[in-house]
């Protein structure tokens, strides 16, 4: 299991690095999908098969498709890739990388010393338990999430409308 985890982790990190460095949007998205699928595998190794399936279905299968869809609609072409390459100036990486490194160091430090001794109690969590928790103590949150989705739907529909010149 640990081998699977490490392979997946390496794939995830590598794919994410590719995502953030590539200039071509569709290629970057493909790498991002790979990264997400790798994370799904990691979920599986963490004993969360339900979350793994959801990650694949929703994240990789639906949300990313939306991304691809939009990138396809924009259909920027080679010029955009060139532009992106120009924008990705080497000098621009310094500050953000430093910031991210600091954050990473802090987080790792916290995890390393904060998780405490003692092996994880472990044990997978079945979809049944997740569902019971969702519609038990988290029922209100589920309702709110439903509202959030509805708001997202309405917002996206409104924003996505192609305005005619008369409306401007």
């Amino acid at each position: 299991m640990m081998i699977v985890f490490y392979i997946a982790a390496v794939i995830a990190v590598a794919a994410t690095v590719m995502t953030i460095t590539l200039t071509h949007a569709v290629h970057a998205l493909l790498y991002l999908i790979v990264s997400l699928l790798a994370v799904a595998v990691i979920f599986y190794t963490l004993g969360a098969p339900f979350a793994a399936a959801l990650e694949a279905i929703t994240y990789a299968g639906a949300i990313m498709v939306l991304f691809v869809f939009v990138v396809m609609m924009l259909n920027l072409g080679e010029a955009a890739v060139e532009q992106e390459r120009r924008w990705l100036d080497r000098r621009m990486w310094g500050g953000p990388a430093l910031l991210a490194a600091a954050l990473l160091a802090e987080l790792v430090y916290t995890f390393a010393f904060g998780i405490g001794p003692g092996g994880p109690s472990g044990g997978g969590v079945s979809p049944h338990a997740v569902g019971a928790a969702l519609f038990g103590p988290y029922l209100l949150a589920v309702e709110i999430a439903g509202f959030l989705l509805l708001a997202g739907l309405v917002g996206a529909y409104h924003l996505g409308r192609r305005r005619t010149d008369a409306e401007e």
Binding site: A12, V13, T16, V17, T19, I20, S35, V39, W87, L88, M92, W93, G95, P96, A97, L99, A100, A101, L103, L104, L107, V108, F111
Partner: peptide, 14 residues
């Protein structure tokens, strides 16, 4: 944490 940092870089640089 690593993925988060990478995502942050992406947001900041792009």
């Amino acid at each position: 944490a690593v993925l988060f940092a990478l995502g942050l870089i992406c947001v900041l640089v792009r």
